[in-house]
Design a protein around this nucleic acid. Structure first.
Lengths: 224, 224
DNA sequence: CGCCCTGTTGAAGGGAATCAACTCCGGTGG
DNA sequence: CCACCGGAGTTGATTCCCTTCAACAGGGCG
């Protein structure tokens, strides 16, 4: 197990309509910048949820831990995405940077004020959370019922879409992080990826940190 | 695999403050009653999300299916709980009754109107959805990393709390449904439960449909 | 009574976890 | 400049737990 973890709350916060509104909040709330080295925590599970964040560059993971070292990384967050929004008083996950990362920090009150003053925004927020829930459900199905190969196919396709590069992606996280996201071990992740490379589905470069998606069609067929 | 599935969207909708507001909406929107036999669908994955529901009696499960028979039941819904709220245009899950069930049906517009007119309610709604997300995250950790015994301990304790009976609960769903909720097979569910009975954790009655929680303390210890 | 469905139990097999060794690279310091 | 070192990734061998396949038991209901 290693220290890196992830933040999932809002893989979808950054999508579609919301983006514009939340960028606006950037201005209105005059968010502070914060730069973090690789492996640092933005917040821990159980800590007061006073802020939420948007990533300028870098990447973040949100995770939950069991008393022993077992870990589940709920989601990864990439540049441009917003995360850390918790309606409860405390965070439900721990957010850790996967690499050197810079974020904009928004006070929680900022969001609340916007919602009160703008019912349309509130509905959008609900919509974004609904999308998150949808995503969580998909991940549950994946964790409970999919094979390692199916899990990795979905993971790589999702990452590629979010990185806006459908051909070649550079993974910002370790094999162990991917394993803890998909409910596998790092060995199984490694073995499955090399097997997928042998099958001509993907290509591995740069010590396995860069992945070429050679056959997206067949990769996509591995999803339902 | 059997036909029964579950609906998860809002295991928490019915909790705390929201209950009062949503009961109010019951009156304002004059929801229609609907009675369903065991095994009937309230709505299917991909169908337009025009209504949401509150259970008067009975129980419902919401599930997702893969092209082959693999299934994930996102959650079970019991009497008094509200579910089926989807902000998207279509439902993300299929909702099926686990037994003869009676529900109140609310048109989606009802919710929308209430939200527009009442920012406080909107915030409560967001809060409820956040709770759902929290719950989904806990389930992901369970699915990815917990042992069958830990899964069943958590499941039984959760069900007992929601049925407001911490001593003896009657399961409204099949072993196969529990299995598809916890990412196991029905055989493993059965075996694990009989083992837990042998260990003095629980007691099984009425052909295994009634469970006595003999040692809640030790059961709770099985969670993190 | 007999069928069907649910649950239980048994035996066998498979697939991922575990344990372990090795490679490769990058950084550090001699 | 190179030897050493540590971390990440890969690969191999073994183990074990859950799944799979199969048979049986017990009720409910026609």
């Amino acid at each position: 197990m290693n220290i890196n973890t992830n933040t999932t709350v809002s893989r979808h916060f950054s999508s579609e309509v919301d983006r514009a509104r939340l960028d606006m909040s950037d201005v209105e709330c005059s968010g502070q910048r914060q730069t973090l080295a690789k492996g640092q925590d933005l917040f821990a599970e159980g800590a007061p949820a006073n802020f939420f964040y948007r990533i300028l560059y870098g990447s973040v993971g949100s995770s939950k831990l069991l008393s022993d070292a077992r870990r589940q990384i709920d989601s990864f967050h990439l540049a441009g995405e917003i995360f850390g929004y918790e309606c409860g008083e405390v965070h439900g996950v721990t957010a850790t940077t996967l690499e050197d990362t810079k974020v904009v920090v928004f006070p929680r009150s900022c969001f609340r004020d916007l919602m009160q003053g703008d019912p349309a925004l509130a509905e959008q927020l609900v919509s974004a959370m609904s999308a998150n829930l949808q995503r969580a459900r998909d991940l549950m199905l994946l964790l409970a019922r999919k094979t390692p190969q199916e899990k990795l196919a979905m993971f790589l396709l999702d990452l590629a879409a979010r990185l806006k590069n459908t051909k070649r992606i550079t993974l910002p996280m370790y094999r162990a992080d991917i394993a803890d996201h998909l409910g596998l071990t790092k060995e199984t992740v490694s073995r499955t990826m090399t097997q997928m490379a042998r099958d001509g589905l993907i290509g591995l470069e740069a010590i396995g940190r860069t992945v070429r998606l050679i056959d997206p069609v067949r990769l996509r067929e591995l999803n339902s």
